[in-house]
Amino acid sequence: MASTAQLPSSERRAEIEANLGGVGNAVRQSSSASGARLVAVSKLKPASDILAAYASGQRHFGENYVQELCEKAAVLPADIKWHFIGRLQSNKCKALAAVPNLWAVETIDSEAKARKLNDAWAAAGHVHSLNVFIQVNTSGEANKGGVEPLEVEGVVRAIGESCERLSLLGLMTIGSLDGSSRRPNPDFLCLRQLRDSLGARLELSMGMSDDYAHALELGATSVRVGSKIFGTRAPKPV
């Protein structure tokens, strides 16, 4: 499908290209991040901003809201690789599965939601499996989504045994504000140690605009960067 979105002004395009180049160079130059993936978080940004980043070679984009992802996917190039990084609701699985170029859902937080997404993906008739990450609540914050660390092994097992249309790619965490100011970041260490304890070759999706460089130092294979590329976001309309 050809894009129907328009590029932004030349000034805005130059700004996004420069920001993306800076972040991309930092990711590529990290000594511990051979092949690390940069996911440009484009939530609440117009499709024109995404197209500017796309024109610079960026292909992986992250969205937090299902409706927004669906709307953008309908007007942007079909070879974009969309990551859903918002809190997953069971009743939104069908809508997500309808996006043909959905590349990954990074916020699986229960066995039940994994099965729901698996069934929705199968019902949508995709011939390939869907990449998923298990979100882990490494900080123990009550208001934060994710599986408790002690429950991760059970979700891993459930995906492997009963979700044949899902491909478990890795573990994901959103670090706490307190943790982001500490070195080493305890949330990132927790995710890495949990991955190692599972004895599986899983990716680590961790690190955002303020701490992605440190996350790469601790072994992140995928970082989710928004404001460093697109600038600050306006509040979501109520």
Results as ranks from 00 to 15, higher is better:
residue 170 G to T: 00
residue 39 V to T: 06
residue 36 A to Y: 04
residue 233 R to N: 12
residue 69 L to R: 03
residue 198 L to I: 03
residue 185 N to E: 13
residue 47 A to H: 04
residue 189 L to D: 11
residue 234 A to L: 13
residue 25 N to D: 14
residue 113 K to M: 08
residue 81 K to W: 01
residue 63 E to Y: 00
residue 52 A to G: 11
residue 19 N to Y: 08
residue 156 V to A: 05
residue 226 G to P: 12
residue 204 L to I: 05
residue 7 L to S: 08
residue 206 M to S: 05
residue 227 S to V: 11
residue 103 W to F: 15
residue 187 D to V: 01
residue 190 C to F: 07
residue 17 E to A: 15
residue 84 F to L: 02
residue 105 V to K: 03
residue 22 G to L: 05
residue 147 V to Y: 00
residue 235 P to Y: 06
residue 52 A to Q: 01
residue 221 T to K: 08
residue 24 G to E: 12
residue 108 I to A: 06
residue 39 V to K: 08
residue 174 I to W: 02
residue 103 W to P: 01
residue 209 S to T: 15
residue 204 L to E: 00
residue 106 E to L: 05
residue 44 L to C: 11
residue 78 A to R: 07
residue 74 A to V: 08
residue 79 D to W: 00
residue 49 D to V: 01
residue 144 K to F: 01
residue 101 N to I: 05
residue 76 L to Y: 09
residue 164 E to F: 02
residue 190 C to K: 15
residue 231 G to W: 08
residue 235 P to V: 06
residue 5 A to C: 14
residue 226 G to T: 09
residue 142 A to T: 12
residue 234 A to N: 14
residue 135 Q to W: 03
residue 85 I to H: 02
residue 38 L to M: 11
residue 27 V to R: 09
residue 65 Y to Q: 08
residue 132 V to M: 10
residue 91 N to K: 14
residue 138 T to L: 13
residue 153 E to W: 00
residue 213 A to E: 15
residue 45 K to S: 04
residue 15 E to L: 13
residue 72 K to T: 04
residue 115 R to P: 01
residue 226 G to S: 04
residue 200 A to W: 07
residue 157 R to I: 00
residue 21 G to S: 11
residue 152 V to C: 11
residue 33 A to C: 08
residue 180 S to Y: 00
residue 23 V to P: 05
residue 236 K to M: 12
residue 190 C to Q: 14
residue 234 A to M: 13
